[in-house]
Amino acid sequence: MTAAADPVPTVMAALGDSISAGFNACGWYVACTSRSWSAGDAVGVDSHYLRLLAIGPAIKGHNLNFAVPGSTSADLAAQAQKAVAAKAAYVTILIGAQDACVSRESHMTPVATYRARVDRALAVLAPAGVKVFAASIPDIKRLWRIGKENAVAKSFWALGRICPTMLADAGSIAKKDQARRNRVRERVQDYNAEMANACAAYGPGCRYDGGAVFSYPYTLDHISKWDFFHPNADGQRALAQTTFKMGFPWVMDPLTQAPPALAR
């Protein structure tokens, strides 16, 4: 059965952390919301917003970004409240990397706590009938794998204490370090499973990416050279392309002659 198409929203918002804020995608340690995979307006990224704009001109200028660098699942409900107050009809959610990227394993957000926080945020959005796209958290162990032989990347990770649970002692292949990285990866997978379950519980108004972001085979070419952690503009574009096709079957506005967004 073909899913019923949805009218293009007139207001959308990005919720989440530094990834959705476009952190380090255009400069040194700054949020670059114009290059956000979700609500950005940079042509080269071709975000969800620009893809929606191509088929529904009424959304023009109504691309909000409430994602904040450093946010964890604890901050999601407050962001959702801002989206509802702004009358967003569609939001994207990508949250959880910072729940796992902490100073030590014992400080990682428990899985049950992560789920409860996501449920709380979705409960804020549900009464307003907000359409939700939930993206999986990227596989941060892949970042270690593709960068562990790069001296510059390892220097950034060490000096900046970037995601210590995964990236500390990046050159080590000791069993204890391998085991630590595997446990952190498993925690991210558990978060993703709970996001999928929470999205399913929300009902047909939520679409999960099916693990597409977690499984994406990104390379260092997708990673910002400002910190060797966040997506650069190419990485943001890959996120937009990978996720949008997993989302809602939006109805084209009859006033525009643009091709269907899902074909892009």
Rank of each mutant, 00 (worst) to 15 (best):
A134K: 13
G160I: 01
P217H: 07
A3G: 12
T92S: 15
F248V: 00
Y208F: 14
V132G: 05
Q98D: 15
A78P: 07
R181A: 03
K245M: 02
V91Q: 10
S103D: 13
T256Y: 14
T165A: 03
D17C: 04
G129I: 12
N232V: 03
H62R: 15
R142V: 02
A78M: 11
A85Q: 05
S18A: 10
V132H: 14
V11Y: 15
R145A: 09
K225A: 06
K175D: 00
V8E: 09
V43N: 09
Q81V: 05
Q241T: 14
C101H: 07
S224C: 01
A201M: 09
A31M: 03
A86W: 08
C101F: 11
G235F: 02
L159Q: 15
M1Q: 12
D75P: 06
P57F: 12
S215R: 15
A126D: 11
Q81W: 06
I137R: 15
S73N: 06
K154G: 04
C32V: 00
P69Q: 14
R185C: 04
D75Y: 05
Y202S: 01
G16E: 00
T242P: 02
D139F: 03
R180E: 00
L52W: 14
R237K: 13
G56K: 13
D177I: 15
R207V: 02
P254A: 02
W226S: 04
S36C: 07
I93P: 10
R115Y: 00
D139T: 01
A261P: 12
A238Q: 06
L50S: 02
I95F: 11
